[in-house]
Design a protein around this nucleic acid. Structure first.
Length: 425
RNA sequence: GGAGACGUAUCGAAGUGGUCACAACGGGCUUGACUCGAAAUCAAGUAGCCCCUUACGGGGCUCGAGGGUUCGAAUCCCUCCGUCUCCGCCA
C-alpha cells in the first residue's frame, strides 16, 4: 500500500509514476471518496462528542431526582442518526481501502519504463558452455540418470508435479543444504515457517486481494487457509501489527519451504520437465530494515544470491527489471537468470526485490526511531535460491559426452564426496 | 474429539451497565532530585489510529476481532480468532 497522502498532494505526479509501469490509473473517484469520508467524519464525530457529553450527565441528573425521559428520547434519536452515518462511513472507507489495496507499489525512479523488453542485464557470470557432442536436455538427463520420475509424479498429482527419486532427491537436498549453510555463514537466521497461512498473510505480502486465484486455497470446516507460494509470504508477516525499536533493525532471516503455485494457464511446451511446476523448493532471504538501510540490504542480498550460483560455477546473468516487469508489490527487482542450454534461454532462479514500505503499510509494521518517531519498516526479499531451475541448469551445463554429470565441488560434501552422476542401467 | 478457564497499556493485574478507564494498584522503562558514584528513596513522564487546526489546541475511536442489545457496553448477548488446563486419540 502506498501513502494516500501522496495522491492527495499531487495525484498527477503519482499517475505519471505508474505510467512507467504501463498502468494508467485514474484517481478522481478515490479523491471523491476521500473528501466524502472526511465530511462524514467531521459530522459524526461532533455528534458523538455531544452524545458523550449528555451520557455523562444522565446519572448526575438522575441522582438529583430530575426527569430524564426527554433527554433519553433525544439521545436515542441522535444515536440513530449516528448509526446511519457510521454505516455510510464504513462503506466509503471500505471502498477507499479496497482501492488502495489493489494499487501496486511505485517503481523506483531509476528504473526503465515499460515491460520485459526493457529489462537490462547488468552483470554476466561465466559463459555459455560449448559441447563437442550433442548435449541432452535436462528431461533426458533426469531420466537417464534416474533423478526424476515424471510419469509417476503426474499419476500421483497431475501435470506439473514430479517425484525426486534416489540420487535426484539427494542432489536436490544437497543444493538446499548448500544454500542454507551459506546463509548461516552470512549471519542470517534460519526459519521454517508453516506452509498453510491465513488470509491476512496474503494481504500483507501483497498477494491478496488481487491474486487470490494464483494460490491453492484450503477450505474445510475449520476455516480457510492457503498454501504459501513462497516463504516470503510467511516471513513478511512476522512483525505484522508490531512496533520494533530502531536498534532491533535490520532483522535478517532466511526460510526454507516448499512453494505452491497454481500457475493456471501458464503451461508451455518448452517448459516441460521441472521448469515450472505446482510445487518446488526454495530458500528465501528476507530482511526488515529502516527506511535508510534498505538500499544497502538490497545490494547485500543480490550479492548473496549471485554468490550461490557462482559457487556452483554456473553461467548466469543478472537483470535489472523494467518498471512494468517488477511484481506489483515491489519498487525494484533484479533477477538472476541461469542459462539452460537445451532451451537456449536464461531462466529466473532468483528474484531480489525491495518493497520499501509497501508491505509494511499493509501489515502495519513500524519501528520507533532513536528520536521516538514511528516509521514504516522496509521489507526486502530475494530467493536464495529456487532449486527447480538450478537443478536442470546444473545438469545441462555440467553434462559430459558419456552421459554423466559432473557434480560441482561445492555440493560434493553433501553427497558423500561423490564427483559424478552416472546413467543408470 | 469431550470438558472447562481465560484474552484489559511495556509486563502483572483490578474493574462485571453510568459513580476509580481522561484505564486503579504494582513492576518495568525514561528524565530529574538526593549521592563521589551506585542502591534505596522522592517527583514527573511513560500508547496507537483518525478528523479539525498555520499553530496553540480541540474532538472521535481502540479493553483479542467483528456484530447486536442500550440514551449509555471492558461489563449483557451472538459469531469468529487466539491462549491455557484436564480427559481421549495419535506421530
Amino acid at each position: 500500500m502506498i501513502d494516500i497522502n501522496l495522491i492527495r498532494k499531487d495525484s498527477e505526479a503519482i499517475r505519471q509514476r505508474y505510467l512507467k509501469k504501463q498502468k494508467d490509473i485514474d484517481f478522481t473517484q478515490l479523491l471523491q471518496w476521500d473528501e466524502q469520508r472526511k465530511q462524514i467524519i467531521a459530522t459524526v464525530e461532533s455528534m458523538k462528542a455531544q452524545r458523550n457529553k449528555v451520557s455523562a450527565l444522565v446519572p448526575q441528573l438522575k441522582k438529583q431526582g430530575q426527569d430524564v425521559t426527554a433527554t433519553i428520547a433525544e439521545m436515542k434519536k441522535l444515536g440513530d442518526e449516528i448509526a446511519q452515518l457510521d454505516k455510510q462511513l464504513a462503506e466509503v472507507s471500505a471502498q477507499i481501502n479496497d482501492f488502495m489495496l489493489r494499487l501496486p507499489n511505485l517503481p523506483d525512479d531509476d528504473l526503465e519504463a515499460g515491460g520485459k523488453e526493457n529489462n537490462r542485464p547488468i552483470k554476466v557470470f561465466g559463459e555459455k558452455p560449448h559441447f563437442d557432442f550433442e548435449p541432452k536436455s535436462h528431461i533426458e538427463l533426469c531420466q537417464s540418470l534416474g533423478l526424476i520420475d515424471y510419469e509417476r509424479g503426474a499419476k500421483l498429482a497431475g501435470n506439473g508435479s514430479w517425484i525426486y527419486t534416489g540420487m535426484g532427491a539427494r542432489l536436490e537436498w544437497a543444493l538446499l543444504n548448500y544454500f542454507i549453510d551459506s546463509h548461516i555463514k552470512s549471519g542470517y537466521t534460519f526459519m521454517l515457517p508453516p506452509y498453510m497461512l491465513n488470509y491476512e498473510c496474503g494481504l500483507t505480502a501483497g498477494q491478496f486481494p488481487k491474486f487470490e486465484d494464483d494460490v491453492y486455497q484450503i477450505s474445510n470446516a475449520e476455516g480457510k487457509k492457503f498454501m504459501l507460494p513462497t516463504a516470503e509470504t510467511a516471513l513478511v508477516n512476522l512483525y505484522r501489527n508490531e512496533i520494533l525499536e530502531e536498534s532491533q533493525l535490520p532483522k535478517k532471516f532466511f526460510g526454507y519451504s516448499a512453494c505452491f503455485r497454481r500457475e493456471a494457464g501458464s503451461y508451455r511446451a518448452e517448459e516441460r520437465g521441472m521448469i515450472r511446476g505446482h510445487q518446488f523448493n526454495k530458500v528465501e532471504l528476507f530482511q526488515y530494515t529502516t527506511a535508510e538501510g534498505s538500499d544497502k540490504a538490497f545490494e547485500e542480498m543480490v550479492n548473496m544470491a549471485c554468490g550461490l550460483v557462482e559457487g556452483l560455477g554456473l553461467h548466469y546473468q543478472l537483470s535489472k527489471l523494467a518498471a512494468g516487469d517488477c511484481s506489483d508489490s515491489m519498487a525494484r527487482t533484479y533477477d538472476i537468470e541461469i542459462y539452460i542450454p537445451s532451451m537456449n534461454v536464461y531462466k529466473e532462479v532468483s528474484s531480489a526485490s525491495n518493497a520499501r514500505d509497501y508491505q509494511a503499510r499493509r501489515g502495519n509494521m513500524r519501528y520507533r526511531t532513536a528520536d521516538k518517531k514511528l516509521q514504516y519498516m522496509h521489507t526486502l526479499n530475494a530467493s536464495g535460491l529456487a532449486t527447480s531451475r538450478v537443478f536442470p541448469a546444473l545438469l545441462e551445463q555440467c553434462q559430459n559426452a558419456d552421459g554423466s554429470v559432473t557434480i560441482p565441488e561445492a555440493l560434493r560434501k553433501y553427497l558423500g564426496g561423490m564427483e559424478k552422476l552416472v546413467p543408470v542401467k
